[in-house]
């Protein structure tokens, strides 16, 4: 197929381009995806994906609905294991050189290191406090002082502390949509992962809440590697360092965000970012 050859070439080329390092340092590669084919039952969802993601950077996955960007994201912490009939037919994902699908890799340990924030905010019907420490509790942490410290640190990290510090023991379901989503982020950073996956975290939020979450992403970048799937091109442009464009299960182009938006190497990418389809 022509598009597939056309798609891999600019992507690999784009990968050679030094990234727009915000803090002036050269980024290291954290995640390598190689020749990755993924199936839902008999239906192939991802075709030969090759991608290298940088450490302590924000990478955005963009593309029209059903292009496989969320699927790829969920492969990174093996959430797809939970769906019936999924299989990896070829290739693999390595995080710092460790194949996450290797036999002796424990998906639970993996998920402790690779956190995830979902499209629809899903705080548990527990108090805010219990929500944040949930991850630590299941790891068996009981030290009250330590838990308190983590709660404050995480909520501050998620820019929620000032809003909820007086009602930590009220239900997390009582918060507004944006607050709920930030609570979910706080919950995720409480287990101190290295990577945070965000699956359209702002799609259900109003513009003000969205702005807050985007601001937060900017802050979080200092400590975490963030991969964000988004429908909104503005969002990708605003908060990511690199952007990968997917179409029909294939990686079309991967480059610095600026390159993608200002000077895309592929006509399909150009068509998408300029709003002609998708």
């Amino acid at each position: 197929m022509e598009t597939s050859s056309a798609s891999s070439t600019p992507a690999s080329r784009a990968f050679q381009v030094p990234s727009r390092a915000t803090d002036g340092q050269k980024a290291q590669t954290l995640i390598e995806i190689e020749n990755f084919d993924f199936y839902y039952g008999a239906k192939q969802a991802l075709f030969d994906i090759n991608l290298k993601l940088d450490d302590k950077r924000v990478t955005a996955f963009i593309g029209p609905s059903g292009c496989g960007k969320s699927t790829l994201l969920r492969c990174l912490n093996r959430m797809n294991d939970l769906i019936d009939g999924t299989s990896i037919k070829r290739g693999g994902i390595k995080i710092r050189g460790v194949d996450v699908n290797a036999r002796d890799v424990d998906s639970i340990e993996l998920r402790k290191r690779v956190g995830m924030v979902f499209q629809k905010s899903n705080p548990f019907p527990k108090s805010i406090y219990e929500n944040v420490i949930y991850g630590l509790r299941i790891q068996g942490e009981t030290n009250k002082a330590k838990l308190d410290a983590v709660v404050e640190k995480s909520l501050r990290g998620a820019a929620l502390w000032d809003e909820v510090k007086d009602r930590l023991h009220e239900s997390g379901l009582g918060l507004s949509g944006g607050q709920q989503q930030r609570l979910c982020i706080a919950r995720t950073i409480a287990v101190s992962p290295e990577i945070i996956l965000m699956d359209e975290p702002c799609s259900a939020l109003d513009p003000i809440a969205t702005a807050k979450v985007e601001e937060l992403i900017h802050e979080l970048k200092k400590e975490f590697t963030i991969i964000i799937v988004t429908h909104s091109m503005q969002q990708a442009a605003r908060c990511s360092d690199k952007t990968a464009f997917f179409y029909m299960g294939k990686l079309i182009e991967y480059a610095d965000t600026r390159t993608i938006f200002m000077n895309p190497g592929n006509p399909q990418t150009e068509a998408y970012v300029s709003g002609r389809f998708g």
């Binding site: 290291q28 590669t29 290298k52 710092r96 050189g97 460790v98 290797a102 424990d106 340990e109």
Partner: peptide, 17 residues
């Protein structure tokens, strides 16, 4: 292997249960 000048800290996701 990508060229990575500073030694990477290990990514601990293997565990014997």
């Amino acid at each position: 292997e990508p060229v990575s000048p500073p030694p990477q800290k290990p990514f601990l996701i293997e565990k014997k249960r």
